[in-house]
Write a protein that binds this DNA or RNA. Structure first.
Lengths: 358, 358
DNA sequence: TTCTGTCATGGTAGCGCTATCTTGCAATCA
DNA sequence: TGATTGCAAGATAGCGCTACCATGACAGAA
């Protein structure tokens, strides 16, 4: 029995870990095997209702939370989804990030960011993604309409989802709102308020959503039997500055409109500035509506009536689609690209109203 | 030899995993033990230079990337840092998110988001954090100045860092810029351009940075021997609307200023709107400067000269501080709160210039 | 009854990495 | 000279979970 004398006192109880409750603790407490607990946690079938409930009760009483690291290690691998972004100050980015991050946590996928600026060739970027073991990518605007990038991604068989695009690629998933319907709704609202001369500031002609918004505007007009007046349509490119010029043109034309519907909030804000310069009161003398519900819409005064996209929800759904697609791809299945349309919301604020009597 | 007949063909080669290169692969290739590779990867000492280089070469040639899940599982546990946020549309949020996410990836910590709205009691929120096994929190404005929250966090001994606060708590880490110095620099610039009557729009008096910015303005004036004129200081609360009223007051007073320095970009943008309403050309008739360099600064026309905080870098440093603090706390050490000041940048754009001759 | 299925559950073996201990060997000490 | 250090490197044992069988029980089919 000489081997009982002071050995280096093996620390058998614990070494690492914060002593947080584990699946094994739950199993012991519930008197079942770890596997059964695992099945319950993952909502798998083949567990009798009674057992399931017992286990769930113990889980709750121990406030057990699965360890994601162990899960992804044992589960084969964790998915990595990259969010490509080209414009760090874009208004939608934080909402997008918020939505995708929340869902990424829930799906146990790792979300990484990949800055993506023009200088770099699409092929090089995609090679980097593959090297970083990215399983799928999230493509916010304007990246989601870059043909070279889309093609390179497709060549690498990388699952992807286009966010808020007007032009969905055949092979990509997409989440968006119906731009045409939204513009239509806004125009209908204006018509309903009594406006007959409604100015429209178009967006950048390179982005497909611009055309869609314009189509919605035109359809509403024609449905209300209002003749389309080309002098009421001004070109813009989504920038404040272009909105300034467009609004100025619209308000100085022979028969100025009683309302301006700008294709985004920046240009609507510019219209507001021009209106004020001309001594026009908004909405008394002129109604102004925007599109996108960016921070700008509530910053300025009066606050903008505008269209809101449910960016956070869209991001959430996008992550889900990618998770499925990536898992399908890994198991060799085909995964047909889905296009999901979300409901937009017309946010009514103080920048529009009935046209002046005159 | 009967046991050679068709057994269920044990899949011994692989079951899971994408076959990506592992630490063991590197070890085999380099002819060393896995532990040595681990030491090299983690930059630990006690590896002879020659071995280290050989291993590093193999790592590169195999383009090996450590599996973070396995790492945190084996390493005891992964840190979880929560980013508390109360305002999803705040301009700084996406930059903050970008910076912290990038650093979180590098430090192998999990970043989670915790929405945090007024209705909820601070104690309840903190209890939830503890329950979610959050190890540390990131506190962006305006949360970073909420005394109840700070206190509750402190009671839970939760490491925290205040981002861009004017009022650092004793027990918290903090990353910020020197608001006073920044406002001073901007005012000096304006004085250097020849302005003598410089209007100032103050920020919300509840936020400490407001006072600091005002102090910087006043110091620059007094250093230039310009008497402080109370009629040139207007109250604001960081909203566009308050900026509208303040600018209107400033521009309609008896001796209007030739420049307006607003305590943030929103109020500067409002000042610009008021100036245009009064038919003033910016910067010819009136110079306008902002603070924060939000998206608004480059949206409007002319673009705003303003002060930029390196939010992304600050976030990065914040994550690093929290990682250290949390690890220190877990190993029972004290961790003295550090306050780090970052360099701001004065961004020169088109909204300011020499005062009019008259 | 005996043979299949089917289904709830358990056992075993890792996932890829790191903590901890141990070994081997040279430099240093008594 | 042997005992002691110091340090590089290896061996071992899990971290917490899940994939993949294996098992046993009980149903219906033969």
């Amino acid at each position: 029995m000489g081997d009982e004398i002071s050995q280096p006192a093996k620390p058998r109880i614990s070494r690492r870990g914060r002593g947080s409750t584990t699946l094994a603790d739950v199993a012991r407490e519930a008197g079942v095997s770890p596997m059964t607990v695992s099945r319950v946690v993952n909502g798998e079938p083949n567990v009798v209702a009674e057992t399931r409930q017992k286990v769930q009760a113990i889980i709750r009483s121990l406030s057990y939370v699965p360890n994601p690291a162990a899960r992804s290690l044992a589960g084969g691998h964790q998915l990595r989804i990259a969010l490509l972004h080209s414009n760090p100050s874009a208004a939608y980015l934080s909402e997008l990030l918020l939505g995708s991050l929340a869902e990424a946590g829930a799906c146990n996928v790792e979300l990484t960011l990949e800055p993506c600026f023009g200088a770099e060739k699409a092929a090089v970027l995609v090679a980097r993604l593959v090297n970083h073991r990215i399983d799928a990518v999230l493509l916010p605007p304007p990246l989601c309409e870059d043909p070279a990038l889309l093609q390179a991604l497709q060549d690498a068989a990388m699952p992807m989802v286009q966010i808020a695009t007007g032009k969905t690629a055949l092979f990509a998933h997409a989440v968006s709102i119906d731009d045409e319907a939204a513009a239509h709704a806004m125009t209908v609202r204006l018509i309903g308020q009594g406006h007959r001369r409604i100015g429209f500031i178009a967006g950048d002609s390179n982005q497909t959503s611009s055309g869609l918004r314009r189509l919605g505007y035109e359809r509403a007009l024609s449905e209300a039997d209002i003749a389309l007046d080309p002098s009421l349509i001004a070109a813009g490119d989504f920038t404040y500055r272009s909105g300034l010029a467009a609004a100025e043109r619209l308000l100085t034309c022979e028969h100025p409109p009683t309302a301006i519907f700008a294709s985004n909030d920046d240009m609507a804000a510019a219209s507001l500035a021009v209106a004020h310069k001309f001594g026009l009161d908004v909405p008394r003398d002129l109604s102004i509506c925007g599109f996108d519900d960016t921070a700008m819409a509530t910053t300025i005064w009066p606050e903008l009536t505008t269209i809101r996209q449910p960016i956070a929800e869209m991001a959430q759904q996008a992550i889900r689609m990618l998770t499925e697609a990536a898992r399908a791809r890994l198991s060799g299945q085909e995964d047909a690209p889905r296009k999901e349309l979300f409901d937009f919301a017309l946010i009514s604020r103080g920048s529009d109203g009935a046209p002046p009597r005159s």
